[in-house]
C-alpha cells in the first residue's frame, strides 16, 4: 500500500472522524439513534480501515492485541458489575435506581450510560480481535485455487 497516496491521505483524514462519530453515537445514544452496539461496530470499523490501509502491524501498534483481549472481558465485567453494585445497594439486580437513590430517574440515566459503555467496549474489542485473528493468519493457497 506504499504507493496509494490518495488512499492513505483520505484514510488518515477519515479515521479521526470515524472515532469521533463512534464516541458521539456511544454517548448520545439515549437522545438520538445509537448506543453501545452501533458505536462498538463503528469504532472497530475505524481500526479495521486503518489496518487495511496501513498494514496490520501499524494497527497493532495503536491498539495492541493484549489490550484488545483484556477489553473483551472488561466490557462484560462493567455491565455485570453495575448489576452487582445495585444488588449490594439494596436494589434488584440491574435496577439503576441504585445509582442515585434520591433521583431514580437520574439513576436510570447513569445506569444506561454505564451499561452502554460496557456493551460498546466489548463489541469494539471483539470485532477488532476477530479482525486481528483473521488478518494475522497467513493464507494457505494451493495451486488449484489460482
Amino acid at each position: 500500500m506504499r504507493h496509494h497516496l490518495i488512499l492513505r491521505v483520505i484514510t488518515k483524514l477519515l479515521v479521526g472522524t470515524i472515532f469521533l462519530f463512534a464516541l458521539y453515537v456511544q454517548f448520545h445514544g439515549d437522545y438520538s439513534p445509537g448506543g453501545g452496539f452501533q458505536a462498538g461496530v463503528i469504532m472497530a470499523a475505524g481500526f479495521i480501515i486503518y489496518g487495511l490501509v496501513f498494514t496490520l502491524d501499524k494497527a497493532q501498534q495503536v491498539f495492541p492485541p493484549w489490550l484488545v483481549h483484556k477489553l473483551i472481558a472488561l466490557g462484560v465485567l462493567l455491565y455485570a458489575g453495575t448489576g452487582i453494585y445495585s444488588l449490594f445497594a439494596g436494589y434488584a439486580y440491574l435496577d439503576y435506581a441504585a445509582l442515585d437513590p434520591h433521583h431514580p430517574e437520574h439513576g436510570q440515566h447513569y445506569g444506561i450510560l454505564i451499561v452502554e459503555l460496557g456493551v460498546g467496549i466489548t463489541v469494539t474489542a471483539v470485532m477488532v480481535a476477530v479482525y486481528y485473528a483473521f488478518a494475522s493468519r497467513a493464507p494457505i493457497l494451493s495451486d488449484e485455487d489460482w
Binding site: 439515549d30 438520538s32 448506543g35 440491574l94 439503576y96 430517574e105 436510570q108 445506569g111 452502554e116
Partner: peptide
Amino acid sequence: HEVGVPNAVTAILASYRGYDTL
C-alpha cells in the same frame, strides 16, 4: 416518567430488558 430517556429503543434495551442485553 419512569426512565426519562428520549430514545425509547435505548431505554428498553438497557433498562427494561437489561438482562436480555447482558
